[in-house]
Each structure stands twice: as C-alpha cells, then as structure tokens.
Write a protein that binds this DNA or RNA. Structure first.
Lengths: 362, 362
DNA sequence: CTGAAAGCGCTTACAG
DNA sequence: CTGAAAGCGCTTACAG
C-alpha cells in the first residue's frame, strides 16, 4: 500500500496476472485503440484493457515522467488568487489544462519581484513542462531571463515586451469607456490608473486618454493617479482626486475593485455615484452587477483568457510558432454612469435593473 | 537539456566530477549539516555541497518520489477559487505548504459531487501524499469513502462528521451577530442562510437563532431562506424576504457576498441599509470595510485556517493523532447595522469611517 | 505479435 | 568514511 492509500496496481502486476511482459502491457495501454495495432493483437489488447479497468490501474506519473522527461505539469504564477480576476483566469487555466491531461501548480507572488524569482525556481525544480505568468512586469526584465533559460511559457492577463501573451484588448477597453463618458457629456474626467508596472492599467489608461484626445480634450496629469488594484487603493486614489479643488465629473478606475473603493470615497464625501459623479470600472467581475449602485464597466473575458493561455502553451510545447492574442472587451453600461439620466436621486427605486449592453463596433 | 530548459544537473554528474560515488553524494546532500556526520567526512561533505551549489543542482523530484514513495504533493479541493474566502484560505495553505517543502495542486469542484469525485481521482492519480478538502458536504458520504480508502486528509472551511477539520467557530460567530442585533433592539430578523449542505451556513444560522432563542425570540421559518453563497444568491434571497408583507428590521447573511446582494436588493426597493434595515455579513472579506455602506460582519481567520489545515495534515502524515480545531471569530461592527444610531440619512458624510471592534467574551 | 533489456535519477540498506 | 548494488515503475528502441 502506498502513502495515499490508493491500491498501487503496477504494470508488473497486470503483466504477471496476464502472463505477459510488462512492455506488452505498457504498449497496449498506450496507443489509441486504432494505432495500438502494432502494440499487441486485438484480443490481447482487449484482455489487458479489461484487467486494467477492473483493477483500476493508474500509471505512476513519477515513473513515467522520469522515463519520458515529460511531467505534464504546468506552473502558474499570479499576483494573488484572492484577486477575483486572477482567480477566474486560473479557473479557465485549470479547466483547459485538465482537458489536455495537464496538471497545474499555482503560486501567489504578490507582484513582488523577489517572490516571482523564488516561486519560479520552486516551480522549475518540480520539473514542470512549461509555465504561465499572470503577473508580468511590463519591462519584461525577469521574464527575459526566464526565456533565456529556455523555459517555455506564455503570459496571460498582462503583456510584456514581445513575449507570447493572451490579454484583453485593454487599449480598446479603455477607449470604449472614454467614448461612453464623452457621449454622456463628461469633459473633466479622472483615471484611477493602477500600478505603473502592469500593462493592464497602462493600456486601459492610454485607450481612455486617447479617446479624449481625439475629442480634443487633454486629461491633465493631476487627473491621472496610480493605485493598487484593490478597493483600498481605489479609495485612496479617489480621496486624492477629491482633495484638491473642484472634483471631476467622472472617474474611470482601471478595475472593478478600485472602482468599488471610489464608490466608498464618494459616499464618505456625501456624493452620489451615478448622479453627482459618474464612476466606471473594468473587468465586469460578478459583483459589478450586484452592487447597490450597479457599476458600468468593461467585460474582459477572464475565463477565456485562461483557456487560451493553456492552448497557446500546449502549441508552444509541441514546438509550434505562436502569436500573442488579444481578446475583445465589451462595454457594459449600468447605473453608476447613467444615474443622472435616469433622473435619479440616490434612492431611486429599481435602478438596479436598468442595464444596457453596448457592443463595440466590429 | 530537459523540456523546461533547466540545466539538468544530476547526482551522477556531481559524483563523476568529484570522483565519488553517487550514493556518497546523495547521503552528503541529505542529512542536516550535523547529522550528515555519518554520510561522509566533513571535508567531503563540504566539497559536495560547494559543487552542488555552484552547479545549481536540483534533485529530480520524480526520481525521488519513485524511490521513496513520497511525493511531497498535496491535493486541495475547493468549491471555487473565485470565491475570495476560499482563495484566502488557499493562500494560507500554499504559504504553509511551501514552508514544509510541500507543493499543492488545487482544483475547483463547484460544489458538485460528480466533480468532487473526478477531481479527487485525478489528484490521487498524481500520487499526492494527502489532501485538503474545502468543499465538504456536511453528510460526509463521499468523504467517508475517501477515508475508507486510506487517503490521509483534513477538511478546512467546512466540517463534516467527525473527520479532522479546521474551521471557524461558526456557531459562535452567528451567536455574536445575534447578540449584536439584539442589543440594537431588533426583534424581527431574517437570515440568508446559505446552502443546506455546508456546515458554515448551518452553524452560523444555528448560532444566530440560538442567541435569539435565549432572548425568548423564536425566528419563524419563513424568515430563514437558503441561498447560494454569492451576491446573486443573496439578492434573490432578500427579494424573497421583502416580497411578503412587512420586511424584517435586520437581515443576517451568512457570508459577505450574499450580504452585498442583500444591499443591492434593499437599494432596488428604495430602502437604506443601516438606517431602514440593518444588514450583516460573515467573513470580513477585504471588500466589507470598503463598501459604500461599510458592512458589519464577523471576521473569520481565513488565512490562518489554511495554514492550520496544512499543519494538521503534516501531523497526520507523520502518523500522529490529530484533533479538529475551531478558530475564534471576531465581531466587526460597521455602519450597515449602526447607521440608524448615527442619525444618518443615506447620504451621511464620513459614515464610512465609523468602525468598532467588539471582542467576544474570552 | 511479443519479449528482453536498458535506463530515467534517485535512495537505502549492506559491505568493507 | 565510502562504494556497490538493488530497485522504485515506467517507456522505448531492438530482437526475434
């Protein structure tokens, strides 16, 4: 009996019980039913398969990995799984990995370069076949080193340099939101811009700013403040925006959690989101629609991003050439930007159900 | 070169380069510096260590596992990582696992028994040394089978039967909230009770109900509604509570996300949380404090729960006897229950900063 | 169509 | 104090 209590049926046991050699059993159990013609006679293959099923034989992956030098293991690094955006991306990764008979190790790096290094080493020491990074710094310094070591990997969530990545088209997402606020007549707007090392915040901000630029409006630097990607960070950034002089008429936070922090800050100042000041987020996390003031945001295909990340990595591991992918964002308009239109005081009834989906131009 | 591009330095390479036998090198690299006295002479050990460091030798874990029948791998099952409560518990698990040189596989089961079975089999096929379940059904039917197979495991988050578990003292947590609402004078209260198969919802509800019972108030069945553990579920449950006749004066949702859904439903009905109706949640997730209406809740030590889960499992793997642990909850009072006391309309300024911690009696 | 052998990289009694 | 051997459970050319 093995440590985990599973009946440790081995190839040898099957072979002995069938009066065959282990190599025959191994071959029969391998090829797909059609190609295992060269493995053993159909009758023998059938006998082997039957017994394997009966005894619930599970090949020992450590033995197989040792022999084949392939572990079917993938290492995944994220800033933190308690960020729902990364958690949902990881759900996509795990799902697609399982379909490819791959298992994944996931580790939190808290966006700290030292931890990124340590975790990468740990994961590599486990002999993974490849990695997925969800915590790329846009400068790609560390990741460049990893690439130089010959480790196959892809990025998800954030891009960096010309490394293969699957991201949301964040620039377009920012632009969609900019155009939406312009349509609503907002001229004096602000951005809670996220961390300066993450392409997500950078690109979303740039897209937003460029939409305004094209409308002839330049957003001044003091209206663009960096922030951590969480509610506390969003609240602090909003406090800063509200501290000096006249507040902007709209605030775009580059992710939903920061936007929730903005909502909290507004409330502290006696301001109503959606009526006094428009607020928008990014990602369309499950909470966005359920907030007391439903949040206008941009849907990013998080689950799909994880799935595509695995697909890309699988092709990379087959030695194929791969290209980065950008997934399409979608504007989701809710009360946090349209509250004023609905003629609403803060206590308007049934505002929560007023939702519209505006699709970006194809 | 191995698949992941890491320089595949082996024990043999070290041995050859040093003119020693692999067994000597293996022994020297193993024991702690003091006990490796019986491995080789101090000088030899030193030479071996130096070269291993220089060449950045990493033992092949598959080879070691094959030989020792120990993988240092732990399988973790959770309902979903996109539930921040489970994500934070998992962060604790991962952290403590790393300290014990353990790696973890984590999989989402969406609380579906079929998936729990499939994932458990997958994880076991990977030859993990033990498992942690964060998705236990209180009936312990499936887990009983797993235990019968001899797999070492512990539960976190939810208890089941008399299986070893690390949980929050959910009964006490519910009681603390009940006492808090009683103190505030609420007599007609309701519970958004979560899923009937999860001990968390069950115990929190029971604790709450028993606090009221001791005050001579019986909460009628129609005031207790089950619900999924997310915002959508909380909103639906609140709609149900608000649909028939006079609404309760306070609603306790057994987790924060459901409570956020309750807040949304109140808003749809033109009601103000904290002034018109008191609302409380459970877990004190990071968002609770940052919401526009900061949420009264019970802090459960999620990170610590994960850490303790690994500690318990490690002891189990050593063959020690282990006992289930209950961690202490802590009441955190915020505006969502005290808004009325603060004399607040819904637009009260700076309400967000009014926070109190009430410690439970020791 | 099936068998026999070699070997992946370790660890661990057993000698000497 | 160090070496030599056996073996964990597989896979994969190579024979026959």
């Amino acid at each position: 009996m093995c440590a985990n209590g599973t009946s440790a049926v081995t190839l040898r046991m099957l072979a002995d019980q069938l009066g065959l050699h282990v190599s025959t059993v191994s071959r029969a159990l391998h090829g797909t039913s059609d190609e295992s013609g060269r493995a053993a006679s159909p009758a023998t293959v059938e006998r082997i398969r039957r017994l394997a099923t009966e005894l619930d034989y599970r090949p020992n992956p450590h033995a197989a990995s040792l022999r084949t030098r392939r572990s079917n293991l993938i290492g995944v690094l994220v800033p933190r799984l308690s960020d729902i955006v990364l958690a949902m991306i990881y759900e996509g990764i795990e799902e697609a990995a399982a379909e490819h008979d791959l298992s994944t190790f996931v580790a939190n790096t808290r966006d700290l370069p030292e931890i990124q290094r340590i975790r990468t080493d740990m994961v590599l020491a486990r002999r993974v076949d490849g990695m997925i990074f969800g915590d790329a710094y846009v400068d790609a310094r560390f990741l460049g080193e990893v690439a130089a070591r010959g480790v196959p990997f892809v990025l998800v969530n954030r891009r960096a340099g010309d490394l293969p990545s699957v991201t949301c088209n964040d620039h377009l997402g920012g632009r969609l939101l900019g155009e939406h606020l312009l349509e609503l007549g907002h001229r004096d707007v602000a951005v809670v811009a996220g961390e300066p090392y993450a392409s997500t915040g950078i690109d979303r901000t740039e897209g937003f700013v460029s939409a305004y630029a094209e409308a002839g409006i330049e957003i001044p630097p003091r209206r663009i403040v960096r922030s951590p990607f969480d509610a506390t960070g969003g609240r602090a950034a909003a406090e800063q925006l509200l501290a000096d002089g006249r507040p902007p008429s709209a605030i775009f936070a580059v992710n939903d959690f920061a936007a929730i922090g903005v909502l909290g800050a507004l409330r502290d100042h006696g301001l109503h989101a959606g009526t006094d000041i428009a607020v928008a987020g990014f990602n369309d996390t499950p909470l966005a629609a359920e907030l007391p003031v439903p949040l206008t945001t941009v849907r990013s295909p998080m689950h799909e991003m994880g799935r595509r990340g695995i697909e890309l990595l699988v092709r990379l591991l087959r030695g194929e050439q791969v290209e980065s992918e950008q997934l399409r964002p979608e504007l989701v308009v809710r009360v946090s930007t349209t509250g004023a239109l609905l003629g609403g005081g803060s206590s308007g009834s049934k505002q929560g159900v007023a939702r519209t989906h505006l699709h970006p131009p194809a």
